[in-house]
């Protein structure tokens, strides 16, 4: 018994340590605008942190609960379209609209999960690809929301409530830090909660989990709802940030992969994996496509693809494993 109590204490201690490290990282990120003045670099950092939040959202379903979704662009796109339509057509500010987008994104994740969670392994992964593709095709042909030509978000005036910033990029930086911080703290809470243990049991062995009275289907649905909701909020922020959305840029299958990749490369089912993966992947992708990809030579894709293969093979437990401090909670299998 002493052993288990000791184990419990050490888990508590590690969780507290992780929270402290989290706060330090958060503070560090908030100080970035003091150091980084260059607009291009600021842009890169904003995208990196946004993807860290999105990958964390994916990680909640794909990592902790083990349901490898390759269709998260659907929730991202829905969140973006809901908040944008509310703003452009009804004038409802995106600060409210993004929560509406998150809500609808979460509802759709439940709607997709209800039939798809009966499928296992590769059947599930492929079904999510197909659902994402159906969403993409339908949005492409839906004239009310602009169809293939997309929607332009007009810039009216500098406003915090309407998330319209043109003078400086710094407010965007704080917004994505808040977003990624929210995703991180939700993941942190989940890790220590009963749900978190249930989800990891579902991930590791469905049959064994069921025999221990873990309610498998509700576990998956809860993970999907939180994951879809966070992804939808991220989509709404992204739409407002770039000022223009169309199905190709926010609902394509490639985006679904890009949402999942940072978590996979950084460390699936870990608190820090999504941030670490994103910090490596997004700058590399953006830099290689702006220096090599402008000519359409394909060199940027070759580097990007090769990098994915190399990291996946060399560090299957994710880059995070390079830092011994943040061991994977349940230990390597």
């Amino acid at each position: 018994m002493a052993g288990s109590i000791l184990g419990h204490n050490s888990i508590q201690r590690r969780r507290r340590l992780e929270l402290i490290v989290g706060l330090i990282v958060l503070a560090g990120l908030c100080l970035l605008p003091l150091v980084v003045k260059d607009v291009y670099t600021q842009n890169l950092i904003i995208l990196t942190i946004l993807y860290a939040g999105l990958a964390q959202a994916w990680n909640i379903l794909g990592g902790y609960c083990g349901q490898v979704s390759l269709g998260h662009a659907l929730y991202f796109g829905i969140g973006a379209y809901v908040s944008t339509m509310l703003y452009v057509k009804l004038g409802i500010p995106p600060t409210l609209g993004m929560f509406a987008g998150g809500l609808v994104g979460g509802l759709f994740a439940l709607l997709v999960g209800w039939p798809c969670f009966r499928l296992s392994g590769h059947y599930y992964a492929i079904a999510t690809v197909v659902v994402g593709e159906i969403g993409y095709l339908l949005f492409l042909n839906w004239d009310f929301i602009g169809g293939a030509s997309g929607i332009n978000i007009p810039f009216k005036h500098e406003s915090l409530v309407e998330l319209q910033f043109r003078v400086t990029k710094v407010p965007w930086l704080y917004l994505v830090i808040a977003y990624a911080g929210l995703a991180w703290i939700i993941a942190w809470i989940i890790e220590g909660s009963r749900w978190g243990y249930s989800w990891r049991a579902v991930k590791d062995d469905v049959t064994a989990a069921r025999s221990l009275a873990v309610r498998v289907f509700p576990s998956k649905m809860a993970a999907a709802a939180i994951s879809g909701c966070l992804t939808g909020i991220g989509g709404a922020i992204f739409a407002q940030f770039v000022g223009y959305i169309d199905p190709d840029s926010i609902m394509s299958g490639n985006l679904s992969i890009l949402i999942a990749l940072p978590a996979v490369l950084g460390g699936v089912g870990t608190l820090w994996g999504p941030l670490v993966g994103s910090a490596l992947l997004i700058p590399l992708k953006e830099l290689s496509s702006s220096y090599l990809g402008s000519s359409g030579s394909g060199l940027d894709l070759m580097i990007y693809g090769a990098l994915i293969v190399l990291i996946a093979l060399a560090r299957p437990q994710g880059l995070i494993s390079l830092l011994g401090l943040f061991r994977k909670p349940e230990g390597a299998r």
Binding site: V68, A125, G298, M302, G305, A306, V309, P316, Q317
Partner: peptide, 21 residues
């Protein structure tokens, strides 16, 4: 031995992007 399913998915995915490039 770790994350086998996910590694397989993303290795072939990375390969696909590489070949396309």
């Amino acid at each position: 031995t770790f994350n086998t399913g996910m590694v397989q998915i993303f290795v072939t995915f990375g390969l696909a992007i590489f070949i396309r490039g």
